[in-house]
Computed example of a mutant assay.
Amino acid sequence: MATAPIRLAVIIGSVREGRFGPTVANWFARQAGDREDFAIDIVDLAEHPLPTVITTTPTAEGAQALGAVMPRIEAAEAFVVVTPEYNHSFPAALKNAIDWHNSQWHAKPVAFVSYGGLSGGLRAVEALRLVFAELHAVTIRDTVSFHGAWAQFGPDGEPVDPEGSTTAVKSLLDQLAWWAITLREGRERRPYVP
């Protein structure tokens, strides 16, 4: 029996000027795109600035941004969050995007690709695991992490030493696919009740 591709949202969590996130996210999306079991949607939070004040009536710009992001989060069956580490945690814009959604995360798997200095963004990932647990999402154990990320990629947007990162991506995607299919089948058989 053929299984429909997993709708995977790759979320770029940084919105800072001069950010490195698109380099990492685009590389990851190319890796995932080589597989037939994923259909990739890159959600760049910088392209859709969400309101920072949660109200029942957001501004026209905020409503437009929500209208661009919410259906994509809802449609996704799995997520990969690409995040840097800011002050031992993750970017405010990423937390804002997470908080604007709730049921859209329920019973879906979330994996992480992080980057940064010495820690490679791993402290941001640990903080995000707590947030996603509260949203009834399942976080994938294995991550892809780039320590000293700016030196890890060449001008072509590819890792200068691809062997380790390619192996890590394969492991992450294998686990993510297993959880996505398992949770898809679970939601189809019985709606998730938070």
Score class of each variant (00 low, 15 high):
residue 117 G to R: 03
residue 99 D to Y: 07
residue 105 W to N: 13
residue 92 A to R: 13
residue 99 D to E: 12
residue 114 S to F: 07
residue 104 Q to T: 12
residue 119 S to T: 15
residue 99 D to Q: 05
residue 100 W to F: 12
residue 113 V to A: 08
residue 124 A to L: 07
residue 96 N to F: 00
residue 97 A to D: 06
residue 86 Y to A: 01
residue 123 R to G: 06
residue 108 K to Y: 14
residue 118 L to Y: 07
residue 122 L to E: 13
residue 107 A to E: 15
residue 97 A to L: 05
residue 87 N to K: 12
residue 96 N to W: 00
residue 105 W to H: 14
residue 96 N to P: 00
residue 103 S to Y: 15
residue 117 G to W: 01
residue 114 S to V: 06
residue 109 P to K: 03
residue 114 S to D: 14
residue 119 S to M: 12
residue 88 H to Q: 12
residue 99 D to L: 03
residue 105 W to K: 13
residue 125 V to L: 07
residue 102 N to S: 13
residue 112 F to D: 03
residue 104 Q to C: 06
residue 119 S to D: 11
residue 88 H to E: 06
residue 114 S to G: 10
residue 114 S to I: 06
residue 103 S to A: 15
residue 102 N to I: 09
residue 109 P to D: 05
residue 90 F to Y: 15
residue 125 V to P: 08
residue 119 S to I: 09
residue 92 A to E: 14
residue 101 H to R: 04
residue 108 K to M: 10
residue 86 Y to C: 01
residue 103 S to C: 09
residue 124 A to H: 08
residue 105 W to R: 13
residue 122 L to R: 09
residue 105 W to C: 10
residue 90 F to I: 00
residue 98 I to V: 15
residue 89 S to R: 02
residue 115 Y to V: 02
residue 105 W to T: 14
residue 98 I to N: 10
residue 97 A to W: 11
residue 114 S to H: 11
residue 123 R to F: 06
residue 114 S to K: 09
residue 125 V to I: 15
residue 116 G to C: 01
residue 109 P to R: 02
residue 101 H to I: 01
residue 94 L to N: 11
residue 112 F to E: 02
residue 95 K to G: 01
residue 99 D to N: 08
residue 112 F to P: 03
residue 112 F to A: 04
residue 104 Q to M: 10
residue 114 S to W: 08
residue 113 V to E: 05
residue 115 Y to I: 02
residue 121 G to S: 08
residue 123 R to I: 02
residue 121 G to H: 06
residue 95 K to S: 06
residue 106 H to W: 15
residue 109 P to A: 01
residue 118 L to S: 10
residue 100 W to P: 10
residue 94 L to I: 11
residue 125 V to C: 07
residue 104 Q to S: 14
residue 110 V to S: 03
residue 113 V to D: 04
residue 89 S to V: 03
residue 92 A to Y: 12
residue 88 H to A: 08
residue 116 G to H: 01
residue 116 G to I: 00
residue 103 S to M: 14
residue 110 V to A: 03
residue 93 A to K: 10
residue 117 G to C: 05
residue 87 N to R: 13
residue 91 P to Y: 01
residue 100 W to G: 08
residue 122 L to G: 04
residue 86 Y to E: 02
residue 117 G to T: 06
residue 117 G to I: 05
residue 85 E to C: 05
residue 115 Y to L: 02
residue 96 N to D: 04
residue 118 L to H: 11
residue 94 L to H: 09
residue 107 A to Q: 14
residue 104 Q to K: 09
residue 92 A to G: 15
residue 93 A to W: 04
residue 108 K to A: 11
residue 120 G to E: 09
residue 119 S to R: 12
residue 107 A to Y: 11
residue 87 N to Q: 15
residue 85 E to D: 11
residue 109 P to F: 02
residue 87 N to G: 09
residue 116 G to K: 00
residue 111 A to V: 05
residue 102 N to W: 12
residue 118 L to C: 05
residue 115 Y to C: 02
residue 89 S to F: 00
residue 113 V to W: 06
residue 115 Y to T: 04
residue 102 N to V: 10
residue 106 H to K: 04
residue 87 N to I: 07
residue 124 A to E: 08
